[in-house]
């Protein structure tokens, strides 16, 4: 990774400290936008189909058509807003930095959340690959501590493996005495 030194520790001192109040150096890859858009589309359509099914089942006859029209408007709005706009904002406003001592993740446009995890407190790092992610050469990373699970991604598969190696490097060094 560009932000990794030879000894496995992140380059913190200058760029890292400055980055805390802004975005971090690493962002999601461009291909992640395809994944986010496809996922959003599937989610909106599945939710819409479920809602329409429930409407057809539960809503009285006289109200069925107006309800379905409202549902259709909501689904189209979702496809217009969520798929191209929210996915791009998610993509643009997610940044991260993984070092030997801490994992930093910043995400969100209107509400921005900046998370710092101690790598020494991370119990495991999971790499998740679904069919769509695998087809796009992507993977999601999940950091688990005793009381918190923090997801990251999607990122390229090779980057995910490197993130895992770096996030666990502090523990591996400590438990093997650096060998």
């Amino acid at each position: 990774m560009a932000s990794t030194q030879a000894d496995g520790r992140g380059k913190w001192s200058a760029s890292g400290r400055a980055a805390r109040t802004h975005a971090y150096a690493l962002t999601l890859p461009p291909v992640a936008l395809h994944y986010l858009m496809i996922r959003s589309t599937v989610e909106v359509l599945m939710t819409g189909a479920l809602a329409c099914g429930l409407a057809l089942w539960l809503v009285p006859d006289g109200w069925r058509l107006p309800t379905l029209v409202v549902m259709a408007i909501l689904i189209i709005s979702g496809l217009i807003v969520d798929v191209p706009i929210v996915s791009r904002l998610t993509m643009r406003h997610t940044s991260y930095h993984v070092g030997a001592d801490a994992v930093r993740i910043k995400r969100g446009y209107l509400l921005s959340k900046d998370t710092v995890l101690s790598t020494a407190q991370i119990l495991n790092v999971s790499i998740i690959e679904g069919p769509l992610l695998r087809r796009l050469g992507l993977a999601k990373v999940r950091f688990t501590t005793l009381n918190h699970v923090e997801p990251l991604g999607p990122v390229e598969r090779g980057v995910a493996v490197e993130i895992r190696r770096q996030a666990l490097s502090t523990y591996i060094e400590a438990s093997t005495g650096g060998h």
């Binding site: 001592d101 801490a102 020494a120 502090t170």
Partner: peptide
Amino acid sequence: MGRLVEDTSPEIAA
């Protein structure tokens, strides 16, 4: 607080 989390990580790992 974030800096503290980062700085104490090697101590916890040890």
